[in-house]
Design a protein around this nucleic acid. Structure first.
Lengths: 216, 216
DNA sequence: TAGTGATTAGGGGATTACCCCTAGAATCTC
DNA sequence: GAGATTCTAGGGGTAATCCCCTAATCACTA
């Protein structure tokens, strides 16, 4: 028997879910909550296997609830439910403990499927959601590739120096490490500041990491 | 009519695909290739709408072919085909121009679906593939969250200072920006070096970015 | 209420980074 | 083989960082 907690601020929605789930032989809604506070309070009393959690709860949001649940009740699964197929919402809650994400226009069958899948220890995402994620994933990759091209090529030796700078070596230590003069290292540093259009070491490191310059 | 190029080093596979696709009224295989070199050579002669591209081609790999196609023939779509449902392969080729990714054990119907979807300007991923991606995406998030916990909490003011350091402000400039003394900023810097276990500004910036300290 | 941490601020000094300049030698490229 | 780039190295100076120390004020909390 799968013990279920439902958390959403719309009573009718909660009751509808309740009605659907209680028709199943292997499921039981043991707790209904209407705010984030209530979820955290109720969790001290009852032990659900899974929480159907609206991420847009008033007060303490679903995301914050999810964080807390992950930290304090790691054995409790979370299926996030939302009206919105927004990439930022999805990644945020996946980030914070949810094992699945479905939309509110999901049918009865898929809902039951999602609950059983997650309680079986797997993860579940509705097809709309995966599509959204994949698209934004591709976009980000494209962007990160595109922006890289503004940066002039950094030479082999400069990369060696840059690597050591990022690793917290001082100019003196770099000189010793590479068996070259302190003044030579200073030359490379100066070139790097120019090429990467940085004002100081902080900028050097930031730009290096933002553009993954050392990863080639 | 969708013009298709098929590229795979297994003749029987290519012929099978050819047979399947030519039965469709709206598709036509206009070119068959068996190596990466051949693909690049043939593209100077023929103009396919889409390339069914094995990513494990001998010689020039599918990934490299994809890079070139993206750069030189951006209007040509690519559907990557592979035996392996490996996260690294998938992300790599999505990184480099493919609009879709399906496995070789995909059925006839899904193949046709994928081709039509991509030629319609959308992207297509088989369900197995999306699952793999989502899983690895979650894993990475978990890991990045886990490692964060070794770092002591950075206070509100320290974060403000840290943010400006990363943005290439000098100590003097930070003092002016925050309307506090130079010595106060130095105090915060010193605390940050201690807390983040860094030796200098470079380490401060690197650790900040590696652990996404400013993103909360 | 006593203790802890955050924020503020300072003195004084050592080290490091940054900037201006030049310049030979090696290496790559057209 | 000529020109560009890279790697090397230096002089001399200013600015910035880092380190040691102390210390008052404020807020939170055990």
């Amino acid at each position: 028997m799968i013990k279920i907690m439902v958390a959403d601020d719309h009573t009718m929605f909660v009751d509808g879910i309740d009605s659907i789930l209680n028709k199943e032989n292997d499921m039981q809604v043991i707790c209904k909550c209407y705010t984030g506070e209530e979820v955290l309070k109720q969790l001290k009393e009852v032990q659900p296997d899974i929480i159907l959690l609206d991420i847009n709860l008033p007060g303490i949001t679903g995301i914050e609830v999810s964080k807390t649940v992950l930290a304090e009740y790691p054995e409790v699964k979370i299926l996030a439910i939302s009206m919105f197929n927004e990439e930022s919402f999805v990644t945020e809650i996946l980030n914070n403990g949810a094992q699945g994400y479905i939309l509110k226009n999901t049918g009865r069958k898929e809902l039951l499927d999602a609950i059983r899948t997650i309680c079986g220890g797997k993860t579940y995402f509705s097809k709309d959601v995966t599509n959204t994620i994949m698209k934004s994933l591709m976009k980000k990759r494209m962007e990160s590739k595109g922006s890289t091209k503004l940066i002039p090529k950094v030479s082999r030796r400069e990369k060696e120096v840059l690597k050591l700078i990022v690793e917290e070596f001082t100019t003196q230590e770099i000189a010793k490490e590479l068996f070259i003069s302190l003044k030579t290292v200073e030359s490379h540093r100066s070139s790097l500041l120019n090429k990467l259009n940085a004002r100081n070491t902080a900028g050097l490191v930031r730009i290096t990491m933002e553009n993954k310059i050392l990863e080639n």
